[in-house]
């Protein structure tokens, strides 16, 4: 029972982190290596607004989500738009942007900025309580993670299947040229997808981070988890990402229960290597087999 509940929570954490990355890659084929950085950035922004500027907590969350989605759009508008179609440059540039944010957060001594270093940054839980479910004691924040994660996944599904913007994003993802001929602007779609993706990274941060500390190093971990989920689920496949989150989430909880938490990274590496060897396109991924006309 313990494993079931904590496994589910863990899986949803994975899904929350990965869904933004998948959305961006699925729509615009841009690997957003700044994903982890945006996640951490939102954590620090929220912390800073609550503690330095004494803002009301929900307000702080909203503002920092706004900032992260704006930042996502800016990354595309200022940098990536000039590099479309050059995969090497796209990868390098988004990687560099992510590093600037992550390492910039740790800068010290510039303009009185102290740098976010050390385990002192904790976001408050939404509700401070513990609830007992089926004999397992669980804190409310983990429940919120579960519910929030489900809400995010469902609302993304609704957004992409039932709104005009969402549908046009999916059209771009399926066939860019055909979509452009139907009057869908691929740059606009990419901006929207990046800003939604960044906001999702931020949303994941504010939901998940109250469970622990906010540290800049976590950005790398988060990005790695997101990438692992995407590779295992199949790059660009949303259903695959959700499935892979559950596979990874439970695999980790089970391995922790059996061998201790030190094996987490080994499990992750093992899972990636196994999937690349046996089903390289991922659990639900479809690789375009040929570019030529059918």
């Amino acid at each position: 029972m313990n494993i079931l509940i904590y496994g589910t929570v863990n899986s949803i954490i994975f899904a929350l982190v990965a869904v933004g990355f998948t959305l961006v890659y699925g729509v615009s084929r841009l690997p957003n290596f700044a994903h982890g950085a945006l996640y951490v950035l939102v954590g620090f922004l929220t912390w800073s607004m609550v503690n330095d500027f004494k803002l009301f907590y929900p307000f702080a969350i909203l503002i920092s989500l706004g900032i992260s989605s704006l930042l996502g759009a800016l990354i595309y508008r200022l940098v990536l738009i000039r590099l479309r179609g050059l995969p090497t440059s796209e990868i390098i540039a988004s990687f560099a942007v992510g590093l600037i944010i992550l390492e910039g957060l740790r800068l010290q001594g510039i303009g009185g900025f102290k740098g976010f270093i050390g385990p002192f940054y904790v976001l408050p839980s939404f509700i401070d309580a513990k609830i007992k479910i089926a004999g397992v004691l669980i804190d409310a924040q983990r429940l919120i993670v579960m519910l929030g994660g489900l809400a995010v996944v469902v609302s993304i599904w609704l957004f992409t299947h039932h709104t005009k913007t969402g549908l046009s994003l999916r059209a771009i993802a399926q066939d860019e040229q055909a979509a452009m001929m139907l009057g869908i602007d691929s740059d606009r779609a990419a901006i929207i997808s990046l800003s939604i993706g960044s906001a999702l990274a931020g949303l994941a941060a504010v939901i998940i981070l109250p469970l622990g500390n906010v540290t800049a190093e976590a950005g790398y971990r988060i990005l790695i988890n997101a990438l692992a989920v995407c590779i295992i689920g199949g790059l660009g496949s949303w259903a695959g990402a959700v499935l892979a989150s559950f596979v990874l989430g439970f695999a980790m909880i089970i391995s922790t229960a059996l061998f201790g938490s030190v094996w987490e990274s080994v499990v992750l590496v093992g899972a990636i290597i196994l999937i690349l060897i046996f089903k390289p396109s991922g659990l639900l991924g479809k690789q375009k087999e040929l570019e030529e006309r059918v």
Partner: peptide
């Protein structure tokens, strides 16, 4: 400190 990574980037 981390300034150098930011500068490279």
């Amino acid at each position: 400190g981390q300034m150098r990574v930011v500068v490279y980037c």
